[in-house]
Amino acid sequence: MSRRLRLAVLAVGGTGLAALLVLACLDLPSFGGRWHPYGEAAVRASLDRHTANTVAFVNFDLRAHDTLGEMSILFAAVVGCVVLLRQARDEHREPPQPSDVAPPVRRYALLVLPVALVVGLYVVAHGQLSPGGGFQGGVVAATALHLLYLGADYRALERVRPIGTYEVTDALGTCAYLVVGLAGVLAGTAFLANTLLPYGTFNTLSSGGTVPLLNAAIGMEVTSAVVVLLARFLDQAVEIEEEQGS
């Protein structure tokens, strides 16, 4: 394709997109309105099922199928990374040199590591009550573990991070979500329908029926997925060397 033709194609696409955007903008509700039909319905349904955080209710009850899809995307992406970033035949591992981090930084990392883990668990556990949930808390907990790499060295991280266990936990989290969904089918309603458990007292940790269970499954899956993903990246960046002259 010549340069001129490519520019012409770009111009046609750009004009079409601009026209559609302008048309869509003309029909938008005014900015910052307080009333929205879907919002009203979602809040009413969420209060009916004793879930304080409507976003968590939409994610794990009303649209639990969407969350299943998103979780599968993360799972597939991590599996893809594990396959792509494995140690190839013409590569070898070179153990990283121990590193000497300044004492204040090392102390900070060791102090903040447990705090960050607790905050991650807190964000997961309070997913159906306050902003947060399995994804956010899982990422925080997984990032917290890597303070060991930042504050000490890669070998310290490898010692507390049996990668096989995290791979199994990743799969288990995915299965747990499916099992909770299938339990609905076995109980005679529908896949992922939130009719299985009592809805509990509003604004407590156990309220919301299956929402906390699905939330915890996502938390487990995301934590392990991020740890496995970062492990592959760290392996490539720190340990795996290409053979000379290959």
Binding site: P98, S99, V101, P104, D153
Partner: peptide
């Protein structure tokens, strides 16, 4: 850390 906290770190 920005002022040389990782000065001794090489290749890791």
């Amino acid at each position: 850390a920005l002022q040389g906290g990782f000065r001794q770190v090489r290749g890791g």
